[in-house]
Amino acid sequence: MSYEMIGITVLWIFLYGYLIVASVDFGAGFFAYYAKTTKQDHIINQLISRYLSPVWEVTNVFFVFFFVGLVGFFPDSAYYFGQSLLIPGSIAIVLIAIRGSFYAFENYGSKKSNFFMFLYGATGLLIPASLSTAMTISEGGFIEETDNGVRLLTGELLTSPYSWSVVFLAIVSVLFISAAFLTFYASKANDQPALELMRKYTLFWGSPTIIASLTTFIAMSQHNARHFEKMLDLWWMFGLSVAFFLGALLLVYQQKRYGLAFIFVMFQFFFAFFGYGAGHLPYLIEPFITVESSVTNEAMGLALVIVFIAGLLLLIPSLILLMRMFLFDAEYVKGKK
């Protein structure tokens, strides 16, 4: 396998990882705030804070890992994304910064204040919206290259149905993934009232997720026919995605196997995300750079791959330790430790 394929595969897996763990985190923030305003916070907030306390930093690292890896494997992308994403990128940084630090402030520091909860809930929806801009502009048609460098066509971006359908999809997916995970976590913790509530949220956010996916498909066919055609060739991946989605909903509806249901949700997004990504190739940012044209030199490619493998050997045991101590430690989940 060539370095560009190794690189893009590794990065895509990490972006997928970020999509899942960050969605759980972002959605949890929204649910926590929503529960508070509807006076149901006594039911789920304990649960949410027990999950999030030990892992919020890890979530952030997934993201850092992705963009540092992107610049490493595909240095040209630093130039194109960097030049065009100054404003959406900065907004995303500010939101992530507020969210991360105020989460820590509130959790370790003072009492729960409504304002912190609001920030926490709102940023959870705004961050995916602003980050999705990077995906959107990679489809082409939103940046131009002039003598003065690359620049973002803000007007096009803000009036494009495709760009808005991606934003919508990002937000509802976050809520759906998060609800599915928290349903599973509540069942693990044997917290019946929380389980009931989260189960309802999961069933509720299922349909907008599938509607948003369809809308995005349609908008994509209008915006980038090449990518759309390639995705149609990979129809089976999207078929599997829908099948896993239905399977997950069925399990949650029948009130059984919540763990399996969440794994189905992960597969649902795995196939959709990789189907989308495979269709995107060979372009990294259409039509400016392909993975092949922008890949780093061989020496750096090799060094990065070696470091990546060594890094995984270090991180995987550590992550397993973290999960065993918190996520899968039944006593901890139930709040006894």
Binding site: V61, V68, P75, D76, Y79, G82, T296, L304
Partner: peptide, 24 residues
């Protein structure tokens, strides 16, 4: 990357390794 895109394009080719290791 947002403020120094040309520098990072260059740096990415030569000094990306420790940046990558730092994330680990």
């Amino acid at each position: 990357s947002l403020l120094w895109p040309k520098f990072m394009q260059f740096a990415g080719n030569v000094i990306a390794l420790p940046l990558f290791m730092e994330t680990f």
